[in-house]
Simulated scan of single mutants.
Amino acid sequence: MQATLDASRIKAISLDLDDTLWPIWPVIARAELALQDWLRPHAPATAEFLTDGERRLTLRREVQASRPEIGHDLRTLRQELIRRALQRHDEDTMLVEPAYEVFIAERMRVELYEDARPALAWLAQRYPVVALSNGNADVQRIGLGEFFHAGFSAQEFGVGKPDARFFHAAAQAAGVLPQEVLHVGDDAALDVVGALDAGLQTVWVNRAGHDWAHDSHRPHATVGDMQALCALLGAGS
């Protein structure tokens, strides 16, 4: 059953970041290349190993299987992946920290969708906006901090979406009740189903025009981009 968005109830916005405000995979690809380039003079065997996407994925799965408790913590997960790659090739594991800093610096260089910044400015003038990300983007380092009242990442909070505690933390940070928060994001399961189960209203940002695949849940509204979200909220206010 299709829920109906009630804009009059909205007192705060919680907002996903990756693939909602910018495409994430080009960013990760650049960060992987930056990491490999930095490692090449310091740990050439590890650098060569990490050039192969299948080998990286296999190693990542090994780390996740052996250390499930860090699944939400992308920083520790990435550092452990680098450490194991270095260790496997008998290269200096003291390189983990500086190598990770190279990766994360590039990861923070995102290219916003054209609609993202104007939409953030519009939303921030009307609501407290709280970032909720399972990724490790930092809105301050990215240069968007002025638009956000608060922000939470799964690696800092200890759990991520779809855990209800994560969504409720956004409501608490904004000083409102969960049912007074509109959560906006691109991931049907993590963002929409998770937020619905936590008692929030939801808008699905469906840039690629995917079909909805969760019969027991439906977003309160679906938009193609962030400007359409602003138009929707402006029309309903």
Rank of each mutant, 00 (worst) to 15 (best):
K11P: 00
R83K: 14
A12V: 08
S216F: 01
L15Y: 06
H217V: 05
I24L: 12
V110F: 05
H220Y: 09
N134R: 10
V159C: 15
E54T: 14
A7S: 13
R55F: 00
G145Q: 05
E97K: 04
D18Q: 14
A170Q: 08
R88L: 14
L17V: 13
N206V: 11
D92I: 07
A154Q: 08
P219Y: 00
A31L: 06
Q172V: 12
H149C: 08
L182E: 08
R30M: 00
R207H: 10
A154T: 10
G158P: 09
H214P: 02
R117Y: 00
A171F: 08
A105N: 07
S237E: 15
A3K: 13
R78D: 05
A45Q: 15
A65C: 04
L57P: 00
N136H: 02
A121H: 11
D52N: 15
T58L: 14
A195P: 03
S237W: 12
A124F: 04
E106R: 14
D92W: 01
R83W: 12
A235N: 11
L190A: 15
A119Y: 02
S14E: 02
R56F: 03
R207V: 04
D191N: 06
Q201H: 09
D187L: 10
A65Q: 14
A173I: 12
S8W: 03
P41V: 10
D191V: 07
T46A: 11
M1K: 10
D37Q: 15
L77S: 12
L17G: 01
D138G: 06
A124E: 00
Q201E: 06
H89K: 03
P219M: 01
A164Y: 11
E111K: 12
E69A: 13
F103L: 05
A195T: 12
L123I: 07
A116Y: 01
R40I: 00
E106P: 02
H183Q: 11
A85L: 04
S8E: 09
H183C: 08
V159I: 15
G71A: 14
L59D: 03
V159M: 11
L95H: 03
L86S: 09
E62M: 12
A7M: 04
R107S: 00
H214F: 09
L57G: 10
R60C: 04
V193F: 02
L50Q: 05
V184S: 04
L120M: 05
V192S: 01
P162G: 07
A116Q: 06
R60D: 13
A119L: 10
A228K: 05
A121C: 02
N136R: 07
R84F: 01
M1A: 11
A7V: 15
Q64H: 11
E111V: 13
K11Y: 00
W22N: 07
L123E: 03
Q172G: 08
R109Y: 02
I24C: 06
I24M: 10
T93V: 14
D73W: 06
E80P: 05
V193L: 09
A213D: 08
G236Q: 15
R83M: 07
A31V: 08
L74F: 12
F148E: 05
